[in-house]
């Protein structure tokens, strides 16, 4: 790795007069890449929360069915 190519930080930001173009392209590219990563992560999170919601709902429904069937059984016993 060679030495820092610029004399000062101000020169670094100016990029020899091309600062606008250089930082525009690098900035937007970085934003785009980060967005890709973020949307991918969001997608997984979203799906995971959906899945756990569905699973817990299924569990609740199952518990309720068991409960009501046991209530039904006890009601049957009392009438007989």
């Amino acid at each position: 790795m060679s030495n820092f190519a610029f004399n000062s930080m101000a020169e670094f930001w100016a990029m020899g007069g091309y600062g606008f173009y250089v930082w525009l392209s690098f900035g937007l590219s970085l934003v785009a890449l980060l967005l890709l990563w973020w949307t991918g992560r969001q997608g997984e999170k979203h799906f995971r929360s959906q899945l756990t919601q569905r699973l817990s709902r299924e569990a609740r429904v199952r518990a309720h069915q068991q409960q009501s069937s046991s209530v039904q059984e006890s009601a049957d016993e009392s009438t007989s």
Binding site: F4, G16, Y18, Y21, F26
Partner: peptide, 24 residues
């Protein structure tokens, strides 16, 4: 990108604008 942006010499024709090459 840090190497390409800060630690390479500028191009003799295109100056510092050539640094876009590192992402392009």
């Amino acid at each position: 990108t840090v190497w390409g942006l800060g630690f390479t010499p500028p191009d003799y024709q295109q100056g510092d604008s050539y640094r876009i090459i590192h992402i392009h």
